[in-house]
C-alpha cells in the first residue's frame, strides 16, 4: 500500500541544514494500521506531509499504491489525495463556515464516492446524529474530531494519514475517539498511518514503529 525507498529530506536553517531523514525505507501492507512514534521534532509530521505530497522530498521515492508521489505534478497530487488519501489532524481542520453534515460529506462528494448508508452508519457510530445541523464551533473538541474522522472515512480511502488525532483531547475522550477511529478504519478497509507520541494510542493499532534520528525502528 505504502512504500518508501531511500527517502532523504533536510530543512535549511540559518545555523545550517538539518537532516530529517537520510535513506529512510518503509513498507506498509493494504489494510494495515501502523503507529509512528517519536519525540517532538523527530519528523513524524514531516513524513506524513511528504507521503501526502504536501511537501517535496530531497531524494528517494514514495509510492502510495501505484502512484509515485515524488514525481507527480501539483494537480496530479491533488487528484491522488482526493481519491485515495485522507488526512486527520490534531487541529481537526473542519470548514468552519459549513455545517457538520456538509463537512462530513465534503470529501466524499468531491471524489464522487458518496454512500448514504455508510454515512448513516458512521454518524450513528460516532454519536453525531443530533449535531448535524450545527456549525463546528458549536461542538466540543471531541465532537469536532469525530466529525473530522467521519469526513476522512466516508469515501473509504486507501490510506488514512493521522497526525496526533487525539492530541487536542483529554485522556478519556482520546481513548474513546481512538477506539472508534481504529475500528472504523478497519471496517472501511483502509490503511492507517498515525503519528503519535502516546504508546497508549499506538496500542490500538496493528504495530508501532519508532522514528529516531531520521531512521525507523520497529518497537
Amino acid at each position: 500500500m505504502l512504500s518508501i525507498r531511500q527517502l532523504s529530506k533536510s530543512f535549511r536553517q540559518p545555523e545550517g541544514d538539518i537532516q530529517v531523514f537520510d535513506q529512510l525505507d518503509f513498507n506498509m501492507n493494504p489494510g494495515a494500521s501502523v503507529a509512528l512514534l517519536g519525540e517532538s521534532g523527530s519528523g513524524k509530521s514531516t513524513l506524513l506531509h511528504l507521503i501526502a505530497g504536501l511537501d517535496r522530498v530531497d531524494g528517494g521515492e514514495i509510492y502510495v499504491g501505484d502512484y509515485q508521489i515524488t514525481v507527480m505534478s501539483e494537480a496530479e497530487l491533488a487528484e491522488m489525495r482526493r481519491q485515495h488519501l485522507s488526512l486527520v489532524f490534531q487541529q481537526f481542520h473542519l470548514i468552519s463556515t459549513l455545517k457538520v453534515i456538509d463537512n462530513i460529506r465534503f470529501q466524499a462528494a468531491l471524489c464522487q464516492r458518496y454512500d448514504a448508508d455508510y454515512e448513516i452508519l458512521l454518524i450513528e457510530r460516532l454519536g453525531l446524529t443530533t449535531q448535524l445541523k450545527k456549525y463546528p464551533y458549536q461542538l466540543s473538541r471531541g465532537q469536532q474530531q469525530r466529525v473530522a474522522i467521519a469526513r476522512s472515512l466516508l469515501h473509504k480511502p486507501a490510506l488514512v494519514l493521522a497526525d496526533e488525532p487525539t492530541g487536542n483531547l483529554d485522556e478519556q475522550s482520546s481513548l474513546e475517539v481512538m477506539s472508534l477511529f481504529s475500528e472504523l478504519v478497519k471496517d472501511a478497509g483502509s490503511s492507517l498511518l498515525m503519528a503519535t507520541h502516546s504508546r497508549d494510542m499506538a496500542a490500538f493499532l496493528d504495530r508501532a514503529i519508532h522514528l529516531h534520528n531520521g531512521k525507523l525502528d520497529a518497537c
Binding site: A52, L54, E74, A75, A78, E79, M80, R81, R82, Q83, L85, L87, H93, L94, I95, S96, T97, F106, Q107, L110, C111
Partner: peptide, 16 residues
C-alpha cells in the same frame, strides 16, 4: 486560510 488549507488537503487542486 484554514479553509483553503483544508481544501488542498482534501485534494482540491490549485486550478479548481
Amino acid at each position: 486560510r484554514p479553509t483553503f488549507i483544508n481544501l488542498r488537503l482534501m485534494g482540491v487542486s490549485t486550478r479548481l
